[in-house]
Design a protein around this nucleic acid. Structure first.
Length: 544
RNA sequence: GUCCGGUUCGUCUAGGGGUUAGGACACCGCCCUUUCACGGCGGCAACACGGGUUCAAAUCCCGUACCGGAUACCA
């Protein structure tokens, strides 16, 4: 049997973290089993469903690259079929008309009202005491014909129980006495959730229903409908819930943006990283490992690995550094600094474009960013290269760009960092971090004259650079290399009787605007002689 | 209230009769280093509680506590 699963969100808001994980698990399971991953928009609650929500959910899924097979099903399109099914059940005596007038909606919190009602009815409540349950067909027909409104309810048997084997939670049993005669069709003819879900799942030939654990009791009601319809229910697999740090419900209303997929996209997260993080929330392959490619997740995913206990999505409100889960942030940083640079480049390009820092020279004609990169750029990990580059890529060239990204990504956490912290590498117009100025410049007043002097020294020492012939169109044979720079700076430092660190940190602040970054020698070389000199002479940082 | 489910470091988790209870994030320390949020090494830190069963229980059983979910003419 070919596996067919579906992700079935109701479009009442953006795609949030819990739904995203449900979608992911469905996707992983379908791909693992070689089946289909379908998408159904459960828009039967007309009052709350919006097109904007649908778009937002689709956007979120697209960002996470959880592409569905087959066409999207909109549940509201099937309302007629749902109604027909309810009528069929009515005809077969498996459901009945309930002429009880619809109760006025409570103005208090709905959940609380329901809880209070349930508590109050405790002990005396018999789920089968509806006076219309055994109304004769004739009388029912007559009242219906007279135009009296009625809801259609499922006629749940007096004794017995529903049971099913949940792929995550095991055998689930529920006595009929615990299940009310659920409404299938509202008195205004509107089909309700449980009916609609069952009809659509049958129609879509769904084999596995993978969804949040909050649907566990709905599964019993749905089993009842499947049985009445004479259809074998699909396999259910309920997922543990994702909770807020206080173990409470993670809600859009209460926690806002932190639960929205869009937030992560906009904050410079890599979908591949966030997906990886999500996969490990409530599921484990049983190994001591955190980083998995999509293919690996697909290959290793199994329903057995899903947990039964809820997971907390950990974040601290009002703490800018901890605005979202630490591990999610780490995961993103890990991907940014270790993924093949060629895969990262397109994302950096988009980020720089958005910040108006992108230059076409970074991606010359016929040279796509994703093409495999020269060996030095892909080496990755060591950001303190001892190797002296003889042919330095010309500032602004493709090779320079790749090398620079590879250099600066080592300490970045999000894509945003390329245009904020990394701005000075791509523009002359960058800001200076006040704390960096205070720590690295103001504390050493001498630097105000020394740094411009160092610029003079560079100019004198590396005067021959431009005279050198270009080995290739993209590289200049330069003496402005780390090996030579360190020699000059060291000599300069000794001459001034100061510490190397003072000079380097001052220079870093002037050249990059921030106090952290790669090896300063690499920064000099990357920025090139001209820019380094220009910035060392700049007075902006001193008098912002 | 009732029904259902859950409980291993702060968080994500591995382990499921005999383990020094493992890993990751976070945190702390040391090293590297011109800085650093990179890297390396190390540290802190957990089986909810009480009874059983057993030679042996974090692991199996029962109970308690706590947490969560459900209990709509919402989805």
């Amino acid at each position: 049997m070919n596996t067919r699963v579906r992700f079935a969100p109701s479009p009442t808001g953006y795609l949030h973290i819990g739904s995203a994980r449900t979608a992911l698990f469905n996707y992983l399971y379908s791909h693992h089993t070689g089946g289909k991953f379908l998408l159904r928009i459960e828009d039967t609650d007309l009052a709350r469903s919006t097109e904007e929500s649908t778009r937002s959910i689709l956007d979120g899924l697209a960002w996470l690259e959880l592409n569905h097979d087959e066409e999207i099903v909109f549940q509201s399109d099937n309302a007629d079929k749902h109604r027909a099914t309810a009528l069929k059940l009515l005809e077969e005596g498996k459901a009945y008309r309930d002429f009880t007038p619809k109760a006025a909606p409570s103005d208090a919190n709905v959940k609380d009202a329901i809880k209070d009602r349930a508590r109050a009815a405790q002990g005396e409540k018999n789920m089968r005491d509806n006076p219309y349950r055994d109304l004769s067909t004739d009388e029912g027909d007559a009242r219906a014909a007279a135009g009296e409104p009625f809801a259609i309810r499922m006629k749940v048997a007096e004794t017995g129980k529903t049971s099913f084997e949940d792929a995550v939670y095991g055998l689930q049993e529920r006595d009929y006495a615990e299940t009310e005669d659920l409404v299938l069709l509202r008195s205004d003819g509107h089909p309700l959730y449980n009916l609609a879900v069952v009809c659509d799942d049958i129609e879509m030939a769904i084999t596995h229903v993978i969804r949040g654990q909050d649907h566990l009791t709905n599964a019993h009601k749905q089993v009842l409908i499947y049985e009445a319809l004479g259809v074998t229910p699909p396999t259910f697999a309920h997922l543990p819930l994702i909770m807020a740090p206080n173990k409470g419900k993670l809600s859009k209303r209460k926690h806002g943006e932190v639960v929205s997929m869009r937030t992560y996209r906009d904050a410079g997260f890599l979908a591949v990283a966030f997906r990886n993080f999500l996969a490990l929330l409530g599921w484990s392959a049983g190994e001591e490992r955190e980083i998995y490619s999509l293919d690996e997740l697909v290959q290793k995913f199994s329903l057995d690995g899903i947990h039964r206990s809820n997971a907390i999505f950990n974040f601290t409100e009002n703490d800018p550094r901890r605005w979202t889960d630490d591990k999610a942030q780490w995961m993103n940083a890990e991907y940014i600094r270790t993924m093949p640079v060629a895969e990262l480049l397109p994302f950096v390009k988009a980020e720089l474009k958005g910040a108006k820092l992108w230059r076409e020279e970074y991606e010359p004609e016929g040279r796509a960013l994703t093409e495999s990169i020269s060996s030095t750029a892909d080496a990755g990990a060591d950001e303190r290269p001892a190797v002296v580059a003889i042919d330095t890529p010309e500032h602004g060239s493709y090779d320079w760009f790749v090398q620079t990204i590879n250099l600066i990504r080592q300490r970045f956490f999000t894509l945003k960092d390329f245009s904020s912290q990394g701005r000075a590498y791509f523009s002359e117009d960058y800001d200076f971090d006040p704390a960096a100025i205070e720590k690295n410049l103001n504390k050493f007043p001498d630097l105000k004259t020394w740094l411009p002097e160092l610029a003079d020294r560079f100019e004198a020492e590396f005067a021959d650079e431009d005279a050198q012939a270009c080995a290739s169109a993209r590289a200049i044979h330069s003496t402005f290399t780390e090996e030579n720079i360190v020699r000059v700076v060291k000599a300069f430092t000794e001459e001034k009787g100061t510490k190397l660190g003072a000079i380097m940190n001052g220079a870093r602040t002037l050249l990059t605007g921030v106090a952290v970054g790669p090896s300063m020698l690499a920064v000099f070389e990357t920025l090139g002689k001209e820019r380094s000199i220009l910035r060392l002479r700049s007075k902006i940082a001193w008098n912002p």
